[in-house]
Design a protein around this nucleic acid. Structure first.
Length: 224
DNA sequence: AAGAAGTGCAACCGCCAACCG
DNA sequence: ACGGTTGGCGGTTGCACTTCT
């Protein structure tokens, strides 16, 4: 007997999420809390797989997600933790609470892997190689730095959690964004770009809209 | 200016482990 | 103890966007 599919494949929508879907998901989660993802599609009317809902929430809509480019410190943390833990992205992400495992995985695959490859092929133009890649440090140095970085990350986690509970409006003052903020930004951008998509209102235009919204949001949050 | 190639990232897929009756 | 269900994770893909020729 084969494994049953996680959801009914017939009638399940795939592809990029629209702002309307995001709003439905966020309002549901805000009311009921995350969890019981199985019930989300039926309760919200979303024609999405439960997994897709969970993924969208954890990787994009969840409050406290920091978007935009990675800092040097984050980069170092990822490299060091990857060296220590391997491709355990969820474990690595637990040390960088404002980043999702998917983000870290993407960043590793698209940026850091290449950097490492360059370094290993003897490209000397990259300064600070030892700082970034622990294999180039002595074990003792590397362990001391890792300890320091983990402590810093733990402190950051503590700060992030306490500020979240203490002040729900923290999103405006920090690079972190609440889900409401995320949605608001998406919607704003989407409305701005809607005239263009009217001519071509298919899946791809939604994707383009959604993706570019995201990029714009990232850019604007960076420039802030 | 236009097409090709490269890049970045959101989302999907399949497997695994924990949970529950 | 066991089997089914669900959530979580890591690998991979698809496609929009950017840069190069």
């Amino acid at each position: 007997m084969g494994r049953p599919p996680c959801c009914d494949k017939i009638g399940v929508k795939k592809g990029p999420w629209t702002p309307e879907e995001d709003i439905m998901l966020v309002s549901y989660v805000q009311e009921h809390g995350p969890g019981n993802w199985r019930a989300v599609p039926s309760n919200t009317g979303l024609r999405r797989c439960s997994k897709s809902c969970r993924l969208r929430w954890t990787n994009y809509l969840r409050p406290g997600i920091k978007r935009g480019s990675f800092t040097d410190h984050e980069e170092k943390m990822i490299v060091q933790l990857q060296g220590l833990l391997g491709n355990k992205w969820a474990a690595i992400a637990s040390y960088l609470p404002e980043r999702t495992d998917n983000d870290i995985k993407n960043y590793w695959n698209t940026h850091l892997k290449k950097k490492l490859k360059k370094l290993q092929s003897g490209d000397s133009c990259l300064s600070g190689a030892g700082e970034l890649f622990p294999a180039m440090l002595s074990k003792g140095q590397w362990e001391r730095r890792l300890q320091t970085d983990i402590s810093t990350a733990k402190q950051a986690l503590h700060d992030a959690l306490s500020s979240e509970t203490a002040d729900k409006s923290f999103a405006g003052a920090t690079p972190y964004a609440s889900s409401t903020e995320n949605i608001a930004r998406l919607l704003k951008q989407w409305m701005n770009e809607k005239p263009n998509s009217h001519n071509n209102n298919n899946n791809k235009s939604q994707c383009s809209s959604s993706t570019s919204n995201n990029r714009t949001a990232v850019d604007s949050s960076c420039s802030d």
